[in-house]
């Protein structure tokens, strides 16, 4: 039993290296297309990111972010259209307000700053998308597993 638990808790690849799990919410109208563009243009990026497509970055509810963390995500990334370009007039302004609150809350809880990130990435910015993912995977690798992750969660 204990053996099983140890393997599970470490959340490691066979090499023993920490492999971060990252949940990413992408806006349907920009960064999701940006991700597509990154793939089409064959920009290299790590495969630690699980992309969730949402119709607008403001659709990302605090509940989504908290559930991701509690279920074992090491970081949560949100991407949306640049301010002023929202498909729904001011959705990303709302995202920004929510993001500030959640960020401040997670900081107070004792989470590191880089665990939750918001970035505006448009449909044509495939390169930036790949760079953002690469950068975040490196940062989270350095930070280690999230403190909110329950012991034993893979």
């Amino acid at each position: 039993m204990s053996e099983v638990k140890t393997t599970a808790a470490s959340s490691c690849a066979s090499s023993g290296e920490f492999v971060p799990k990252i949940v990413m919410f992408c806006c349907n109208w920009c960064s999701y297309a940006g991700a597509d563009g990154a793939g089409v243009s064959r920009f290299q990026q790590p495969s630690n990111v699980r992309v969730v497509r949402v119709m607008c970055s403001s659709r990302v509810d605090p509940v989504h972010i908290y559930t991701a963390f509690l279920e074992g995500a090491d970081a949560v990334l949100i991407t949306g259209c640049h301010i002023g370009d929202c498909h729904y007039v001011n959705g990303n302004d709302k995202t920004l307000v929510k993001y500030k609150f959640i960020k401040s809350m997670l900081n107070e809880m004792g989470m590191e700053d880089d665990r939750l990130m918001l970035r505006w990435i448009s449909a044509s910015e495939g390169q930036q998308f790949a760079e953002f993912v690469t950068e975040m995977v490196e940062k989270v690798k350095a930070l280690g597993p999230s403190p909110l992750r329950k012991d034993g969660v893979v």
């Binding site: 605090p62 509940v63 908290y66 559930t67 509690l70 959640i102 809880m109 909110l148």
Partner: peptide, 28 residues
Amino acid sequence: AKCTAFNDPVDNYDISLFHMIRFLHLMD
């Protein structure tokens, strides 16, 4: 409410979603 509807005791999180959402709501 959001804090009760999405909170399931079976999840058995270290900090329940109920508290996470309440913390956020009460910030302002």
